[in-house]
Nucleic acid binder design. Sequence first.
RNA 1: CGGGGCGUAGCGCAGCCUGGUAGCGCACCUGUUUUGGGAACAGGGGGUCGCAAGUUCGAAUCUUGCCGCCCCGACCA
Length: 440
Amino acid sequence: MRLSRYFLPVLKETPADATVASHRYMLRAGMIKQNSAGIYTWLPLGHRVLKKIEQIVREEQNKAGAIEMLMPTIQSADLWRETGRYDAYGPEMLRITDRHDREMLFGPTNEDMITDVFRSFVRSYKDLPKMLYHIQWKFRDETRPRFGVMRGREFLMKDTYSFDLTKEDAVKSYNKMFTAYLNTFARLGIKAVPMKADTGPIGGDLSHEFVILAESGESEVFCHRDLVEMAPPGDVDFEGDLSHIFDERTSLYAATEEMHDAEEFAKIPKDKQLSARGIEVGHIFYFGDKYSAPMKATVMDSNGKPQNVMMGSYGIGVSRLVGGIIEACHDENGIVWPKSVAPFGVGIINLNMKDEACGVAATDFYEKCVEAGLDPLYDDSPDRGGVKFSRMDLIGLPYQIVIGPRGLKEGIVEVKDRATGERQNLSPEAAMNLLVEAFA
RNA sequence: CGGGGCGUAGCGCAGCCUGGUAGCGCACCUGUUUUGGGAACAGGGGGUCGCAAGUUCGAAUCUUGCCGCCCCGACCA
């Protein structure tokens, strides 16, 4: 993409409303625009990141055997009455009346609806297990939206629902998602720690939150230090036994504030005790027949007897992750994107648009990057060097290629690694090789 | 939902206390000179001062009501 043809409204000054780093940088980098409290437009740069995260989440869900579908944002109140949640959910649910005075709502989650879908079609235990998911916008009318997209009212969430005949089988599904989540967050370039969690209003008795450690986190969390650096499971057989992965993580202490047990925590060696602020980016629940029972979602077992299906639900805050990743990956100059989610792979800076040789070299490098699939952003604006440098640092692409008249005379371009700040002077060919290898 | 704060040009702010018809920096437009870490000079455009009512000869400024947004807390993906 050529910057001159793109839509990248960066801000030089920090908007007064933004107090946390990710919110400030998202506004300044032209990723989002606030429309009202907790509701945002995703501008082109932000949209790219959102879609990249979404795609990684999708791929890891598919690997784990979950099947993608799409349910609507608007739901009928009737379904929620069946489970008693229409009254239980409270003012956080946005209630709407249609022209026929029918009560509708903008879905804050989809347990009720997916249970309805399931019971409409599935009759036999032979169809189990099943894991279904969608990636859809949710609305929760928070009393106090804040921190930009990290606590919006409208947000994009991946929610998976598992259906099994028995609790024992449901725990296997739970472990699949537990494992998939570890891989997902690792691919996103962040360290998310699974922590024993309160089940909240969704209910159930087995639940973990996946938490990124960051100073701006909303809640306090406690865990064993080793959990933070533990390598992800990587390629595993999702049809095989995954309990060792679950056991390995859960044998070390990790809990959110509500579930914190100071006595247990104290048993950890002092140098391994970690208490920090955390951002919840994923949450998984097992809740048995909480919804299948009232909604009569049953399948025939091998004896021909109807059984309530045992369910779990598994959420990842896709839009929240954009902010969460920035909280974990930024410096004083701006965002430092992990390669996997960066909006563009490499930024090319032409230091002097009026210098003909410079233009030829930069355009040539740009076109080669396109061919190599590096997804480059070419700053072909007439701005001065300083403006281009600081803008490129702000939007945080993993690599910057600086092409200027001075270097070209020596036959070199400068390659800057955004994360380390390290710069190398290389021939264009060597620079290209470096980039291709970096993204291989 | 309790407590606090803010709303004046696209962004960041001053002016309000003490009423007299709106200003600064950045951004934007034109021109010239510049061009390796947010250039300089000259000229220019842009605001019914959140909305409504009231007080007054006169309201950004005083009064009342409403709306919007932010921060702390409680609540939550």
